[in-house]
Structures are given as structure tokens and as C-alpha cells.
Design a protein around this nucleic acid. Structure first.
Lengths: 157, 157
DNA sequence: TGCATATAATTTACACGTAAACTATATAAA
DNA sequence: TTTATATAGTTTACGTGTAAATTATATGCA
């Protein structure tokens, strides 16, 4: 079994569930690593890219905690993330006038350009990583992953 | 589409590959988070648990870099990991006499007990997370994940 | 009004991941 | 033997993830 060999595991898996969990974690890790390398070549970390993508997709400024919510990031970490993006000139903070507790974050022109540069390489990497699966296989993989996530998505934790 | 809704994405996915990559990353993250919580309740972090599992599975002491290799961890990080495990009394370092550059790491009795305590909860969590998939679905998921990883596992990066 | 409670965001502390530079030991070749 | 090269492991620096405590502002209710 491929995974067992990869892990140099001596014992076989105790259950199909265990094997699938390890497969999932390992595959996710590897994919994430490839994207991390791509982003780093452009001076970004994955979390930073994700924040910029959220802001571009939304098309307008968003409160900090709204961004954190979509990243599924714990709240405290978001502050430093926005700090570093702001220092890099990729986002700007603006305090809300109606509710002065809220701080809006908006994407800068520099960040829009950086994202545009990345669009093609990102699409290529998607294809490079999974292009060897057929359409039917990709659809089935998507179905299984979404089904796998069902017990987790009900309570958004 | 479930994932698109979860991400509050406004545009549909550009490709099946993109959707599968995001699905994979998201599902892997969620699963990892559940295990992290379980481990934390027992005073461990995922990386620490993984190291202890490798040592138990091997049944004997291992050189530090051999452990790092199996974790796919970059070399530098392993030092601190072993440091903290040693401080917690869960592993011991022993310098090799034949080659004094090599440092062996072995698991302690305390760690063996801790792992034994965790075996049942870990198996339960595997089942809780993926038990709602049929055997056929789990097998297919495993097949697809291993196929997905094929372009990555050839060169062990 | 005044106080309790809730919410937005930050700070602090610590574990982990990764790149680059470094130390110590081993091995091979001049 | 001496020098060059390779390998095992550590250190440092920085970005990220998470928990607990803190600050500032809003809101609900007496």
C-alpha cells in the first residue's frame, strides 16, 4: 500500500478510516507545501494570499473579524497578519465611523497587481497537482471530501 | 455547491482541479484541528504525538534526522521539538558512540503510557470523522488521494 | 442616567514550520 | 598528514496558529 510504504509504517492500518485520515492529512500537507512555495517566490505566505483573495473576491473592504471568520483563523492571529500586510503596503486599515470598534481592511492597488500576476501560476499549479485525475475522478473526490466534512460543517466550531 | 457556500465565494470555481484543491486543503485542515484538540487535552501537540508514534512504531531509538525525515519536517525544526519532548520527560537523547555526530532519540516509559491512553480516543476520532462513509467510499477516497499524491511522491522533495 | 453585558480588536505567551548560517564530526583524496 | 568535502545536528530569525487576558466601544436594561 502506497501510504504505508511512504510512512515506513511497519503495521498495516487498523481501519479504513485511519488510512483515509492519514491519507487526507498527508495529501493536504503536500498540496499546501506546493502552494506555499509558489507564494513565497512572490513574497507572500499562504495566509497572506488567502486574505488578499478574500478581499478581492468580496470587491470591498471588510471588517477584520469578518476576514478572520472566513479564514477559520482564530481571532488573535489576524491582527499580526493584517499588521504585516499593511506594512508591506498590500492592505489599508480604516476605522468605521458608525461603530468605532470596527476596523475595515481594504486591498491596495499594489496587492491587486500582485494577485493578477499570481492568477496564471496558481491555475497552472492546480492543474499540475490534480490534472492527472479524470473529470469523473475529480467530481468523485469532491463529493467524498464534502461528505467527509459533513459532521464538521454543521457546527461551525 | 457546499464548498462554495462555506467559503462565501461569489464566483463559481474556475476548474474542477481548483475546487478539489480547496476541498482537500479545507478538509485536511478541519481533520487536523480535531486531532489537535484531542492531543491538547492530553498535553500534546500534533507534532509531538507524531514523533512519539514514529518511535513507538519503530520499537527502538532513532537518529534525530531519521525522525525528521519521516515527519517530512524541515531539519531545523526537529531540534526544538525533541528539546521540548525531552524537557517533558517523554523522550531521551543518547549520543552514538560509533559516530559522534549522531544523536539517538528514544521514547520513555511515561510516553508509552501516554500513547496507550490515547489509542482508544484516537481510533474513536478516526471513526467519528469518517465513519459515515461506506467501506467502498473510503476505499475510493484512499485510491483518489494516493493518485492525487503521485506527482508529489516521486521526488521526495 | 448608570451599570452589566456583549462585541471588535489587540496583546502576550508559547508551539510549530521554514530558510540560512553555523558547529562538530567523519570521510576521502592529495 | 593535511586539506577538502559531506553529513548530523543546532541556532537564529521570522511568519503563523491558538489560548487567555485586556482594551475600547456598544447596547440593553434598571
Amino acid at each position: 500500500m502506497a501510504l504505508q510504504r511512504e510512512l515506513k509504517k511497519k503495521q498495516p492500518f487498523e481501519s479504513l478510516e485511519q488510512e483515509a485520515v492519514l491519507n487526507l492529512l498527508r495529501t493536504g500537507d503536500r498540496v499546501q507545501l506546493e502552494f506555499a512555495r509558489l507564494f513565497r517566490r512572490h513574497g507572500l505566505f499562504p495566509a497572506q494570499y488567502n486574505i488578499l483573495r478574500i478581499l478581492r473576491g468580496e470587491g470591498k473592504r471588510l471588517p477584520i473579524l469578518e476576514i478572520a471568520g472566513r479564514l477559520l483563523t482564530q481571532v488573535p492571529g489576524i491582527t499580526g497578519l493584517i499588521d504585516r500586510l499593511e506594512r508591506a503596503g498590500l492592505v489599508a486599515r480604516q476605522r468605521c465611523d458608525e461603530d468605532r470598534r470596527v476596523i475595515y481592511v481594504s486591498i491596495t492597488e499594489a496587492a491587486s497587481q500582485l494577485l493578477a500576476e499570481l492568477d496564471e501560476p496558481v491555475a497552472q499549479l492546480h492543474h499540475q497537482l490534480l490534472g492527472h485525475l479524470s473529470s469523473a475522478e475529480l467530481k468523485e473526490l469532491n463529493r467524498l471530501l464534502e461528505k467527509a466534512r459533513q459532521p464538521l460543517t454543521t457546527d461551525e466550531t
